[in-house]
Amino acid sequence: MSSSTDSPTLTTETTQLSPQPDTETAQPTKKITLKSSDNQIFEVEEAVAMEFATVKSFFEDSPSSTDTVPLPNVTAKPLSQVIEFCKEQIKFKANPDEAQKKKYHSEDLLDVLNQAVADRIENKSVEYVRGFFGIDNDFTAEEEAALRQEHAWAYEGVDED
């Protein structure tokens, strides 16, 4: 079935965005400095840093910048884990045989995370998911009431927040 691969995922996007890894290992690699929200400094290779969409767009906006890239959304602990994950990703991409074996490595990780979120919100109220995802309700009260009225059954049997 091709349908499962049709759906856009974060993974495919990062794969398209990422630069080809250098095949010449002798070439000196540029380092990029990242700063977590709790002011920890991480020095990573450019190829690894470019796996982060935020970092990539930072350098697209200011290509010659040598500044530290601030990452205000993430603290040191998860950031270090994600950096390790990106390093592995690049190794897999550089070595197709190994990559083939681990083809679904990254999809698996994202899949687990998405399923965990889905399980958590499945029986929750609209108000709960608005808070959970940080989205604002831009419907008027009348529009929202009409939508709720149209599918009243979908609002029954919802968990307490």
């Binding site: 994202l110 109220s125 609209v126 599918h151």
Partner: peptide, 23 residues
């Protein structure tokens, strides 16, 4: 795209409910 992937894992009842969350 991540929101989409999460929605794809939810049953229809949940998705219909969340369709009034925002435009």
């Amino acid at each position: 795209d991540m929101v989409m992937d999460i929605f794809l894992k939810l049953p229809v009842k949940s998705i219909i409910r969340f369709s009034c969350a925002s435009k």
